[in-house]
Simulated assay, not measured.
Amino acid sequence: MASADGTIMPVDDVPADTTALFRIRERDNGETHEAVLIDTDDGIEAWLNHCMHFTHIGLDKGSGAECRNGEIVCTNHGAMFEADTGHCTFGPCEGARLADVAVTVENGTVRLADDRYEFVATGPKADDDVDLTSTSNVEF
């Protein structure tokens, strides 16, 4: 459920070893996106939930992204992204950077602080938000 003040979740609900999934909507065109929160040594960071190799592939598929040694792992092609900077350190998109979403932590609560978006809800996109157009990685 959307909150008027951009409240996403209590900071204590952000998992220590994976990501928390939430949805945001672009203010200018109404397009909905998934994003992830991750707890890093430097605080809570948020990134759009897609690999920079193939942007239709989510890092968090609904149960938390795989994370190892401070990096988010794309399980499709093995790309690794620094959780605190979004920088890809390994894989087919090495050198790319995850798209950031600005958040703040106030009074133990994570809030959306990015004027480009409005908070929609926690969790993955609903079935009616999913584009079923083919996005196969196989070229014919």
Rank of each mutant, 00 (worst) to 15 (best):
N76G: 05
V36L: 15
R116A: 13
S3N: 08
D12V: 13
E45S: 03
D127L: 11
D13Y: 07
N49R: 01
A113L: 10
D42E: 14
V120A: 02
D129L: 11
G108Q: 06
C51N: 13
V103I: 09
G108L: 03
E34F: 02
N76W: 11
I72A: 02
D39T: 02
A102G: 01
A102R: 10
V73W: 02
A102N: 06
T133F: 06
R97T: 15
H77Y: 12
F90A: 12
G78D: 12
D131N: 11
K125F: 04
F90V: 09
A2D: 03
D84Q: 10
T109F: 02
T32K: 06
R27D: 07
D60H: 07
L21D: 05
A83W: 04
A46N: 07
E139V: 13
T75Q: 10
T32G: 04
D28L: 04
N49S: 04
H53S: 09
G78N: 12
K125L: 15
G6N: 08
L37K: 00
M9E: 10
I24R: 09
G78L: 13
T89W: 08
N107T: 03
T19I: 02
G6Y: 09
D41A: 14
G64W: 09
T122P: 05
R111G: 00
T133K: 10
N137P: 04
E66H: 12
R111W: 00
T75G: 04
V11I: 08
V103G: 00
T18D: 11
N76P: 01
A2C: 01
G62D: 00
F119G: 06
V73G: 02
A113W: 09
L59V: 14
R23S: 15
V105I: 05
V101L: 00
A102H: 07
R116K: 12
W47L: 00
A2L: 02
N137C: 06
D42H: 11
H77S: 10
C93W: 12
C74S: 13
A2G: 02
F22Q: 12
A16P: 05
T7L: 05
A121S: 14
C74Q: 14
G58T: 03
D127R: 09
N69K: 14
S136C: 07
C93S: 12
V36N: 07
V110T: 04
C67I: 08
A79W: 06
E31R: 12
A102M: 05
T133S: 14
H50L: 03
V130F: 11
T18F: 10
T40M: 01
E118Q: 14
A83N: 06
D42S: 13
P10R: 14
E71A: 13
L112T: 01
S136H: 04
T109H: 04
G64H: 15
V101D: 00
C51Y: 13
T40E: 03
F22Y: 15
R97V: 14
L98H: 01
A16I: 06
A79Q: 07
A4D: 05
I57T: 08
N49C: 01
D127E: 15
A99N: 08
T55W: 09
